[in-house]
Design a binder for these strands. Sequence first.
DNA 1: CGAATTTGACCTGCGC
DNA 2: GCGCAGGTCAAATTCG
Length: 251
Amino acid sequence: MEEQSRDPVATWTFSGDRGFIYCTERDDSILGDVAPEVGSGFLTFDLGDASGLDMVAPPPEKRSPPPPPVPPPKSGAGSGGTALSSSTGDPPETTNKVIRKRQKRAHQPRFAFMTKSEIDLLEDGYQWRKYGQKAVKNSPFPRSYYRCTNSKCTVKKLIQRSSEDPTVVITTYEGQHCHHSVAFPRGGMRARHAAALMDQLVPSLRFPAMPLHGNQPMVPGQLVQFPHKEHYNEGLLDDIMLSTVRKTQGE
DNA sequence: CGAATTTGACCTGCGC
DNA sequence: GCGCAGGTCAAATTCG
């Protein structure tokens, strides 16, 4: 049973100085939304050499069509207004909130992955501002909500620890940056190459710093994945499920 | 003092 | 229709 190749899950593994991305057909619809130019197939890269980016031509087979654009909900000023806005009548503020709601509902590309790290907020070259924290069901760990500090940028970031393995941090990016990162994160070449890779995969979506401090690396070579979202009770990775495994660096 | 974080309240979507 | 859970807002608080 090679569930790895059959289950509808995109797996992203890192092993030593090499890594590869594999997305299945099912996930193609997801990745296609995030990075339509990628499609399905293998994408290999060498973290040790910037020129090592090598993309195996994805089979131009059936590419599940991108999800239909979410029809903008009727300007439900009545259904959308918050208590605050309703108390002040319907000034332009209300309009702004309605617009925000629309943006919220609009299908934003999501990109989620797991890292083994003690640090929740991994450096990824962007600055984030925390705007909320919420306890999630069936998880002792709260979920933190971050927003890019760039006023023009609507990218959001959700961070939560796995209820099964508290050492695993699940990060979800939503949206696309409309600006460049302020600085490369720590992690040197590795993070830089990973970021470069992500620029190819998902323009404006950068992969965060590799958890170089992973003092408790996962089992080398072992692939951790959530075959079905039912297995992941938080439902965080509803759009795309990626697993990241760092192999121990030598010893 | 300004910026960032915390935290409780509110709103929305979804399942029953 | 109701209740629950997730997501967002904004005032209060903390920090640099």
